[in-house]
Structures are given as C-alpha cells and as structure tokens.
Simulated scan of single mutants.
Amino acid sequence: MRRGLIAALLTSLLVVTAACGSSDSTDSSGSSDKATKSAEATAPAKQKTSTIDAVKVAGDLGKKPTVTFDKPFSVASTQSKVIKEGSGAKLAEGQEVVVDYVGINGRDSKEFDSSWKNGGPTSFGLAKGKLINGFVTGLVGKPVGSRVLITIPPKDGYGANGQPQAGIKGTDSLVFVIDVKKAYKPLSKAEGTKVTPPKGLPTVKTDAKDIPTAITIPKGATAPKKLVSQPLIKGKGPKVTAKQTINMHYMAVNWRTGKPFDSSWQRGSYENLPLTRTPVKGLTAGLVGQTVGSRVLLVLPPDQGFGQALPQTDVKKTDTVVFVVDILGAN
C-alpha cells in the first residue's frame, strides 16, 4: 500500500501500520512469489510452531505488561485471546481505535514497538491495508476496555519481506498485547454549515458528492506572509485541542506553481495526524480550535510549512503551500 507523501512526513511511522510493509499475498511489482521462495529457502529447516497459550502476560490493565515465552516462538495462524475483558461495545472493522500496545518479535523476544515507549496511546484505522492483517483479525469482535493478546504469523504480518527497520525478518512471528481504550466511527467528509470565505484566497472545487477535487490559486496574487486558517464548512463537533490526534482527509497544492502534490481523497483513505508530533507548525496552529466536522482552508508560509524541499514534488523549502482539510474526528 502506498503511503501518502505528506502523511509519511507528518506522522510518526508506527510499525503495526501497513504503510511500509504488507501482509497481502501479492503486490504491484509481481515479486511476491520470488520473495516468498527466498524466505522459505532461508527459513530454519525445522521451525517448531506453538500456540497462543505458550505466551504469558502479567501486569495491570493500563500499565505496560510483562510478556514472556520460550524463544523462538512461532505460530502458523493468527490467534487472539482476551486477557482482561472490558465492558464496552465490540470492535468492528472500519472503526477508529485508540490503543496502548507493545509488539515483541517471537524469534528473539525483543520488543520492536510500544506506545508506552512512544509517549502515549495511539489511534489506528481498524482496517486491512491500514494495519497488518493479523492486528485487524485479532481485534475485531473484542470489547472496548479489554487487554488482548495476539500472535501473528509472517503471512498475516509483513510477509516474506519482513520489516527490516524494526528487525523483523520474513520468517518471524509477532506477539502483541493491546489495551483497547476507545473506538468510534469517523465522519466520511465535512458536515456542518457552509462559510463564505473572504476574497483573494485560493478556491476549492468539489464534485457532486462535495468532495474536494482541486484548489485554484488566485491569479497574480502574492502569497500571504502569515498563516491563514479559514473554515469553509463549520462543523458541529467539539473543538480540536493541541494534544489530540485528528482523523483527516486533505489535499495539498504548491502556491507558486498551482500544482497539487498530495491528496488522501485520491488514495481513498483518511490519515491520522498527531498534532503534538508533526513538524509542520502551520497544521497544528491552523487546526487547533477548529471543530470536528469542519472543512478548513490553510495557507502555510514557508516558516509554517515543511522546512525542506519535498522529494518527488515541485515543492521547495521556500514555497508557500495550501491545504484543504476535512476534520473527520479527534481523540
């Protein structure tokens, strides 16, 4: 799955996301079969498989668990078990979930990712393609408020390619313990009262379903020197705060050239933006205080933008960039 250029720059790249790896059996390059054969050739000749019952989890709900098992640990299929059951509604695919979690490599029992280490709970879209398949399979149907243990084989994790940056090989099984804190369904697009913006700003074209398809820079206009944050639709939800992660659809255009360089709508999947972690100051400054359900036009001068040239685009370090953002949810 191709990760959006801006999303990769704006958000912390968490290992459980499917952005830099995939558990799909095929990919666009057609090289999956070769990779699988290569991985099989280098796999241990007699790798014993186990079950989820071989993993022991200790510790209080809400605190980082202690996870123990005999290594190397390997499973043939995704297995999940509720360690401590919550009283909330059961999770469904397509929801946004807020979790704490720790991920451990079954081969060497080393931790490769943890929200407790990263500074706090993390928000995910619970859907295959956004997360590794085993993570989704293991969580769907579990009650909110639960602590869940999931064991995942390579085919439901990162496949034959593994995840080298996390030290995960193509033959490694994964162990996760997840505390499910919250679940909700984000909006599909902005909803609320339309706002007439002042003259002289970029204009946003939408399709028959009111989805933004283009941003037009006013001819001959000089880019603003200060951040512009202009609602186009005023949502009726709560105000966004600086410590939240927002679910958003967006389109981005270079003011200098008028060319679009990224769009989550074109990819067909919204993105999550942790406002405390993005290096793009103008996004945090322009979205904090706006309400969920809003559509916001943002004009970011260079000192509020990326602070660098963006690869594979025409955006320079000195360029002003324009966003239109739909705020679909916040947690």
Rank of each mutant, 00 (worst) to 15 (best):
R3P: 04
I6Y: 00
L10C: 14
L10H: 00
L14C: 12
S32G: 11
A39R: 13
K46L: 10
A54P: 02
G59R: 00
G59A: 07
D60V: 11
K63L: 10
K71M: 05
F73V: 10
V75F: 11
S77F: 07
K84G: 02
E85P: 02
G94S: 08
Q95T: 06
D100T: 05
N105R: 15
N105H: 04
S109R: 15
N118H: 10
N118Q: 14
S123G: 11
G125W: 04
K130R: 09
G138N: 06
L139T: 07
G145W: 06
G145F: 00
I150R: 06
Y158C: 10
G159F: 06
Q163M: 11
P164F: 02
T171K: 02
V175P: 05
G200W: 12
L201D: 07
A221H: 09
T222S: 14
A223C: 09
P224S: 07
L227P: 03
I233T: 15
K234Y: 01
P238D: 15
N247I: 08
V253E: 07
W255A: 08
K259S: 13
D262Y: 05
S264D: 09
W265N: 10
L275M: 11
T278N: 03
P279K: 14
L283K: 03
Q290G: 03
L297C: 09
P301R: 08
P301H: 06
D303W: 01
D303Q: 15
Q304A: 10
Q308V: 08
L310C: 04
D314F: 06
V315S: 00
T318Y: 02
T318W: 04
I327L: 14
G329C: 02
